[in-house]
Simulated assay, not measured.
Amino acid sequence: MMQQNDEIGFFIKLISECLQKKANQTLKEFDLTLSQARILFYLHDRNETQTSLKDLEDFFEVTHPTIIGILNRLEGKDFVRNEHNSKDKRLKTIFLTEKGINLFFTMDHFRKTTERKMMQGLTSDQITELQSLLTTVYKNIQEI
C-alpha cells in the first residue's frame, strides 16, 4: 500500500512547487511573475510567427481576460507590444520588444541552469525516458 509520500502525484506537486518558488525568486529581480515569464518564452520560441491573443489563450489554456491582464502588465514594462494584424484589423498580434528579447536571454540562462541541476546524475537515456514517461502521464491525466 502506498503512503502519501510515495505517490507519483505528490512528487510531481513537490517538484512543481519547488520550481515555482525558485523561478519566482529569480523573476522578482526583474519584477516579473512566472506567468509573465512563460509568455515571454512562448513569444520568443515562436520567433517571427504572428502570435494572436487566441494563440496565447489556447496554448496556456487560460481565459481571454487572464491573457489580457498578463499582456497589459508586460506591455507596461515595455517587454511586449501589440499591433493590429495585417490581414485582419480586428485581431492583435503580440511581439517581444528589444527589451523583452534581452530579458529572455537573461531568463533563459536561469532556465538552462535549473534544467541541468534537475537532470544531474541522470544519463541521457534516463532523461529521454523521463521525458517520454512524463508526456504519457500528462496525456493520461488530461483524459480524466
Rank of each mutant, 00 (worst) to 15 (best):
Q4I: 13
Q4H: 07
D6S: 02
D6H: 00
I8P: 06
I8F: 00
F10Q: 02
I12T: 01
I12F: 02
S16Y: 08
S16E: 09
E17M: 08
C18P: 04
L19N: 14
Q20D: 10
Q20L: 15
K21H: 12
K22Y: 15
N24Q: 12
Q25M: 15
T26G: 10
L27K: 13
L27P: 03
L27F: 13
K28C: 11
K28L: 13
K28P: 09
K28H: 03
E29F: 08
E29I: 13
F30G: 10
F30V: 10
F30I: 12
L32E: 02
Q36D: 02
R38P: 04
R38S: 10
R38Q: 02
Y42S: 01
Y42A: 13
L43H: 00
L43C: 01
H44K: 04
D45C: 09
E48D: 05
T49G: 01
Q50E: 07
Q50T: 07
T51Q: 02
S52E: 11
S52D: 12
K54R: 14
D55L: 05
L56Q: 03
L56D: 03
E57Y: 04
D58S: 06
D58F: 02
E61T: 07
V62Q: 08
T63V: 11
H64N: 13
T66R: 12
I67D: 05
I68P: 05
I68L: 10
I70T: 14
I70S: 05
L71E: 00
N72R: 04
N72M: 06
R73C: 07
E75W: 02
E75I: 05
G76P: 01
D78N: 14
R81A: 15
R81F: 00
N82K: 12
E83F: 09
H84W: 04
H84V: 13
N85D: 12
S86L: 07
K87E: 00
D88V: 09
K89R: 15
K89S: 03
K92S: 12
T93N: 12
I94H: 02
L96T: 02
L96F: 03
L96C: 01
T97D: 03
I101V: 13
N102M: 10
N102P: 02
N102Y: 00
N102V: 12
N102H: 06
F105C: 07
F105L: 14
F105K: 07
T106W: 00
M107Y: 08
D108I: 11
D108P: 05
D108A: 14
H109A: 12
F110M: 12
T113I: 11
T113F: 07
E115F: 14
E115D: 15
R116V: 09
K117Y: 05
K117N: 07
M118I: 05
Q120L: 11
Q120N: 09
L122E: 14
T123M: 09
S124M: 10
D125H: 11
I127H: 08
T128I: 05
E129W: 06
L130C: 14
L130T: 13
S132V: 13
L134K: 07
L134E: 03
V137D: 04
Y138R: 15
Y138L: 04
Q142V: 02
E143G: 01
I144Q: 12
